[in-house]
Every structure is written in structure tokens, then in C-alpha cells.
Amino acid sequence: MEFLTQIINGLSQGSIFALVALGYSMVYGITQLINFAHGDIIMVGAYATYVMLILAGTPLWAAILAAVLFCAVVGVVIEQVAYQRLLNKNAPRISLLITAIGVSMLLQNLFQLIFKSDAKSVSNVLPSFPVPIGPLEISSVTLITIATSVVIMILLQLLVKKTRIGKAMRATSEDAGAAKLMGVSSRNTIAFTFAVGSGLAAVGAVLYVGAYPSITPYMGSLLGLKAFVAAVLGGIGSIPGAMIGGLLIGVAESLTKAVGLSQITDAVVFGILILVLLIKPTGLLGKNIKEKV
């Protein structure tokens, strides 16, 4: 029973990783950019939730909406200000990577400047009570996290598979030049992808704060890195891959804790990254993409 409870906790934690991993993967699919500032978007979302819920005292739905919109805007602004020129000029990937790390540091320091570096408490974001399921007792927060993520991932699949902009995203990710010939504006598609990815990270932030109600300007680093590992494990660029990778990393973490090895949880996660890179660098669902000339 304990084992099953740990699996469910892992799925809950993992669905947060998955929501964040989607942002890494979608942006990478379209721009081949690893947006290391993406983890800090979680932090931005957490502070947006804090400002709305605690400082302004708005209801939860308004706080979530505000966090999602604010993160989407921040994501697009980062893309336009920091990345767009580099992408237009086909800058080397290392320049993009360095820029992304710079943006990450900027966000962390900016929020430290505004909110100071001490941890802020954002308790009771989500209603918390035990829910009996058969012989198990699962926290409502865990169930809400899993359910919300499932709904959002279904919506994302519908967006990508059924809508015009979703098809434009897939086409651009596969062959940006051919997509342009069809009339797809790369610029708009990239901006839209950043908005969606950042919005998903904001949802991840709200769920994360629901489970761990203490926020700091640096909270996004480790969470972001683990989500990145999830994206690589699933196959970066693949949307279902990011979902599966996130869940697997969550369960791996949870089981590591369950066997009493809490101290090495992070080592296990990054050990998975090393294994993936050694054994199957394209990840579980990744395609072997040939470098375009």
C-alpha cells in the first residue's frame, strides 16, 4: 500500500515536472533553443500567485489566471527582447544558451531585488484534506495536481493537433522553411510557443506552491533543471515525450525517497540524465533528427 501511495505521490510531482518540461520541449522543437530561463518562469508564476493571493487577496481562480497571463507575457517579452535577433541571424546555439543563462540570472536577481531573498509563505493555495481511495488515503492536493495536469495535457494535445496555430507549430518545428512557403510566420509561431510554454509553467507553479508553500527567487533553478531532465528523457522536441518523461522523473524521485534515500534524490534524477545521454541520447520518443545544412 505504501508503495502505491508513493507511486501516486510521484505521479503528482511528476505531472508538475511534465508541465514545465513541455515548455522546454516545445520551444526546443521550434527554435532548437534550450531555454534555461524557463525554470525561472515557474518562480515568476509562484510570485505572481503570491502577489495576487496573499498581498491582493484575490480568489484562487483570479490568481491562477493572473499567473498564467503574466508568465505568458513574460515568456513572450523574453523571446522578443533576448532571443529573437539571435534566432533571426541563425546565431550559433552556444550564443543562445549563454543568453538563456543570462536571462535566468536576470530574473532571479530582479525578483530578489523586488521581494528580497527570504522565503515567502504561500500556504493553503489548494484545499487540503485527506481523500480515502479504497485502503489508501491520498491528499486532495495530490489528486488536484494530477487531475489538473491531465486536463491541461489533453487541451494541449487538442491545440496542437486540431487548431490552425497548432498545425503551424508542428509544421514550423518540422521544417521552418517549408512552413514559411505555406504562409506561416515563424515569428508569430515562435512567440505563441513561448506564450503557451510559459503559461504551462505558471500552472505548474501554482500546483507546486500548493504542495510546497514556500517560495524564493531561486526556487526555479532546481525544479527547472529536473524538468529539463524530464524533457531529455522523453525526447526533447516531443510533446508526449515531455509528459512521459515528467511522470517518470516524478515517480523515480518518489521511490528513491520511499526506500529511504532522500538525500540522493537529486543525484538519481541527474544520474538518469547521464544514463539517457549515454544510452539513448534522443530520449524515449525523440526522433533522430539530421542536422540541416
Binding site: K167, A171, E174, D175, A179, M182, V184, K287
Partner: peptide, 15 residues
């Protein structure tokens, strides 16, 4: 667009 269906490719043509 190799990973999209024939139908979706044609839809992209009418984008």
C-alpha cells in the same frame, strides 16, 4: 511535413 498526415499537409497548403 513528414510526421503530419496527407490531409494535414494539404491543410497546411491552405493555411
Amino acid at each position: 511535413f513528414a510526421s503530419m498526415t496527407v490531409q494535414e499537409n494539404l491543410e497546411m497548403g491552405a493555411y
